[in-house]
Each structure stands twice: as C-alpha cells, then as structure tokens.
Write a protein that binds this DNA or RNA. Sequence first.
DNA 1: TACCAATGATTAATCGTTTAATCATTGGTG
DNA 2: CACCAATGATTAAACGATTAATCATTGGTA
Lengths: 354, 354
Amino acid sequence: MAFVRSGSNLSQIAALLGVSAATVSNALSGKGRVSAELVDKIRATAAEIGYVPSLTGRALRTGRTGVLGLVLPDIANPLFPQIAQAIEFAASSAGYGVLIADSRGSVAMQTDAISRLVERDVDGIVIVPRRGTRITDIGCPVAVIDSPSTPGNTVSADHWQGGQAVVEHLAGLGHRRFLLIGNNAASNVQNDRIGGMKSRLPQGGHAEVMWIERHEAQFGKGGLLGLAERVADGFTAFCAVSDLQALRALTELQRAGIAVPEAASVTGFDDLVWSSVITPGLTTLRMDMATIADIAIKALVRVIETDAAGTAVAADRPSVPMTLVIRQTTARMAASAGTVSNSEPETPPEGERR
Amino acid sequence: MAFVRSGSNLSQIAALLGVSAATVSNALSGKGRVSAELVDKIRATAAEIGYVPSLTGRALRTGRTGVLGLVLPDIANPLFPQIAQAIEFAASSAGYGVLIADSRGSVAMQTDAISRLVERDVDGIVIVPRRGTRITDIGCPVAVIDSPSTPGNTVSADHWQGGQAVVEHLAGLGHRRFLLIGNNAASNVQNDRIGGMKSRLPQGGHAEVMWIERHEAQFGKGGLLGLAERVADGFTAFCAVSDLQALRALTELQRAGIAVPEAASVTGFDDLVWSSVITPGLTTLRMDMATIADIAIKALVRVIETDAAGTAVAADRPSVPMTLVIRQTTARMAASAGTVSNSEPETPPEGERR
DNA sequence: TACCAATGATTAATCGTTTAATCATTGGTG
DNA sequence: CACCAATGATTAAACGATTAATCATTGGTA
C-alpha cells in the first residue's frame, strides 16, 4: 500500500547485485543477453525493493512519454464522461496515460489546447473535434472521433444507422409524421443522425427538421419549442439528435398536458445518464463507446509504435453500430392520433444518401 | 501554426550564438548572471527557431513533471464535466497539465488509479473521493474536494449553506412540508446538503428524508418513487440533493398529472446541463467550481513548489458558497395545497448542527 | 602595485533510462 | 593449435535541462 516513489532506480539494483545498470535494464526489458538465472535474481530484487521505472528517464531516452492527449470540443458536453471514461480505460489498458485539454468551445482554444498537449510531448492525440472544424496536420499522430462522413475520421459510432433504427422502430409502431429535432446544422454527427432518420421514412411518411439554435436565434433562448402546436398539426413522433433535446421535448410536452407515449412518442440519442431514471424512461440510441475508444486507441498506438511519420491514423473498422434502447417514451400510435385532416401523402421518402 | 516539435534544444541555441548551453538556460530562466544584451539575443534566437523547452528533460533534472493527477469517483458522474473543466483550466493557468484517472466507482480501482498517477510521477493529485472513502497518505501532495465536514477536506462548496438556501427560499414561498430526496446516505456531500435543509425548517415545518438507494433496494431499481402519494399526504416541496434526482422527481410528478410548480415545487443541486432547458426550468443550486478549482490548485501548487514534505494540503478558504438559481419549478404554494387534514405542528425545527 | 569584489560566462556533474559498441570467456571446429 | 562464433556481461554515450562550482576579466580600492 506504499505509494511512495521509493527513489529506487536501476543502479540501486545493480549495486545490490554487483552488476551493471545496463544489465539490469536488459534483464527487466528482456532485450539484451542476460543469463536466465541473473534475470531471475534481478527480477527478485527489483520486486523486493519495490522498483518502479522512472517514466521520465525512459521518456528522455526513448523520446516517448507514454502519454496521450484527449481534446474535447467542450468538456461541459454531457457526453463527455462516457468518452473520457472509455478513452482512459482503453489507454491505460494499453499502458498510456491520458492528459486532458479542454477547448472550451472556441476554435482558437482548440488550437491552443492541442499545442499545450504537444508541448508536453504527448505521443498522440485523440480528438473529438468541434463541429465544423477540420483537424490540420499537427506533427503527431491523431485519432479523430467524429462521424463516418467526416473526412479524416478515424472511428466513430454509426450515427446514420442509428437514425435509421429510430425511424424504423417508430414506423413499426405506426407513426407517420416525424419532427426531427436537431441543435446545430453544422454538426456532422447531427446531420448523419438526421440523414439516417430521413432515409427510412415509411410509405406516406413525412418528416420535418427543426434546428434548435436556429429557432432560438429567432425566438430567444430557453423558450418553448412550440411542440404542442406540432402535435395539433398531427406530428406524433419527436426524434431528437440528443437526449438533451429529447428531454427538453419530453418535459415540454408533459407540461402541456400531452401524454407521452400515449399521444406522442419521443426519442433521443446517446443514452445519457438521466435517460433511464426519468418518467417515462427515454427510448434512445446508445453508442458503444468502449469499442470506439478501443479502436481509436489501438489505431493510435499502432501508429505510434511503428514510428509511422504520417499523422493520418486509420482504423480497420471506422464505424461502430449503435444499439436501440427501448424504454417508455415510444409506443404504438393511438388510433385517434395522427389521423388529422391533412394526411396528404405528398412527401416522398427521401432516397438513401449512401 | 507549426505544432511540430521542432527538435530544437538549448545546445542548438547555444551553438548558434557561440555560447554555452548553461548560459542559454540561465538567460531564459533568469537565474544565473547573464548580461542584459546577451539575454536579449538569446531570447530572440529562441523565438526565431521556435524553441520549446523539453519538459521531459527538465522533469528528469528537477524531479518535477509539471503534471497533476485528477481522480474522480466515477467519471460517469454528470457533475464530472464541470469539475474537470474547472480543474483543467485552473491547472493549465498555473502551468500544469492534468492527467485523468477514473476509479470506476470501486474503492480498489480508486487505489489503482492513484498509484497509476504516482507511477507517472505526478507532482500532486486532486481527488474527489468516492463517498465513504478516506484518502490515506500517498506520498505526494493531495487536494481533496469533498465537503467541509469531511476530515482532510481541502476545499469544497458549502453544501450545508446550499441546503439552507433551498429551504429558506421555499419556506418564503409558504411551503411547510418538505420531502428531502437523497441518493445514498453514506455521502458526506449529500448529508451536508440535507443537514442544511433541515436546519432551516420554518415554524411548524416538517421534513422527511427519502434515500433512493434504500428505496430501490426495497422496491427494485428504476421504478416510481411514489411521489404522487406524497403529494396526497400534503407534501408540497420536493428537494433533491442533485439535479438528477430532481429531474426524476419532476418527470414522475408531471407524468402523474401533478402540475409543477402549481401543485408542488421541486429543487435540485448542481445546475447540471439540462436544468435550464427542461420545462419548467429547474430551480437549483450552483457551485462555483471555477473558484473551488482555483483554490484547490493554488493550495496544491503552493505545497508542491515549497517542497513541503507533508501531504496535507490546506486552503485558506475551505468552503465556497453556493448560489441559488431560481427558475420555474418553485412557486408560492397554492392556497389549496398543503393544507390537508394533518397539519400538526408537532415537528419542531431541528437545531443547527454547527 | 597588489589585492579584492563584482560581473559574466563556462565546465562538468546530475537526473534515470536505453542501447550500440566493446570486451572477456568459453567451447567447438577445421 | 589456432581461429571463430556464441554467450554474457560491461562501458560509455546519449536524451535535454538545471545548477553548483569554477574561471577569467574588469574596475575599484588601499
């Protein structure tokens, strides 16, 4: 239980056994030529005095710090915990530490954050880019987690497929009029999700997209989204690109006295922490962050450890499917709902985008 | 914009100017005796070739890595983003990097996480301990962010005062019967919050505590908390120790057709990201994480830079007040509500605990 | 003139590890 | 017997910065 940095080093072990430090190093790393018995003795004494190699010393010599940087668009993002946890786990399993850097939303700070990491000699960087930004060459290996449709993306969830799964689920429950709720139209992730949803509209289905930032720019921040009126218009399915927006929709509907899921269904994305504890429980899509992180880290480590000069990191599997988590906010459409006057079949289902 | 580690070092600058590396080091750090003009020249060339000191080299020599560790009870905690962001900002302002370590909830992993950090030679650690655990001496300076009532706490929000503010606010609105909703009774933070609430009950006020984990152990996870029945019992104020529980309460009440805030008021804690976007907006308490992080980092850095051997880090100001954010889930009690039969004044307000 | 202090710079050791180059010993082979 | 290869270990040079100790020069003072 003694965490204390024992101050022990190679030469100490060497002195104890009357051998050279180089031999100790070789023995422990299994690299040079050391007799089996000596290796055993060295291992034993190392364990005995609680030797822990100095990563700093090693870093200076090898030029590798064993540390990866993690840059997030905005740490305040509620998805951040999932990502950070998964990355930290994958990284430390691979023997790397994780240095965080917050870019606080702004592009300038993202640049700043990256250079802070590089100055600290990280061996590589995992970056979840700010929407709309493109990662330029930064002189060290970079794995990008964004969306499959982003150029330069290393690995990410299959947001498009997730969108498809949502609409398929709802269409199967009889829904025909969908309000797709996004936040910002510049986000690759959000566009993929919405694109996927649109691509699976059922026969005679109709979808409309509402971008919250655009809405708020017009009507002010934090107000109502006017969803009750949409229900009156015949919309029965409200599909948000994130659980945050889904929650906003759900509470707004509840407050307006519209029963969920009886009168309207609501879905989100990401399975954020609260989604399972609210009433009714939110139907949402979960990404397999553990797998994504694993792929990202593996790809990054491969590039690092093969000294590949180029900074483009590619993974064998660039996208990981999302899984639908069905809870209580989605249900078969009530016989009465949705069959309002204007049930025109004028909107053809959109074609597949890929 | 060139992030590339230029490979430049002290000797390179030295060679360029025909001086010794030591002089360059002295000039840049302002430590030895170097003539003003030479300092200028050295600074100029350093800037010109884009010299960035190798933190690794420096670390090896000085024994200080310039990196702090951040240990969180469970990264998945929705409060984590706020904490991490604030700590990262404060640390990087002080010239330190932040290495994260997730303890994934378990005590064993918390120990593990700490030793991983120590092995990486962090100069100090900021730890938000798992509830119920006590941080033992770990051989490097540690700042603990927990609650003022925790022994060994360095700095934290004044949860007790936050609790007081909640109840004062609600009492001012006429509420008398409070249901205090906690999650786990072993948490210092939660106990402080609840203690503060109890300490400010108005004349004739009544408070009851409900621990969710206990409730779920009995009735199963994820079910209803039976809040509608509590409303029938005359409770009008539902005060959760976290926005997560408040959200759970709010949606459960809404779903049961109980109007918030007309028929019941709900409050949370922490001002989590969704609290401002839900309908109605959640009244909650915000902690000033920026200040808390600043104090924690300053205290930690002071210990580190004075080489104080002892690992007990004390701050000048151990607790930071929380601020009440009033939104729409709290309102003056309806004339009809709460005046049910059993309005006995039998419960005396609890005394101050400190 | 001789001595001293202040100034400005250099030397060299050090932090702990890795690793190429070297050396010594041994047994085997032509 | 001489030569070679294999084996097991050592030496010494890095990596890049910091810093105590040292040295050289200058100007001032007794």
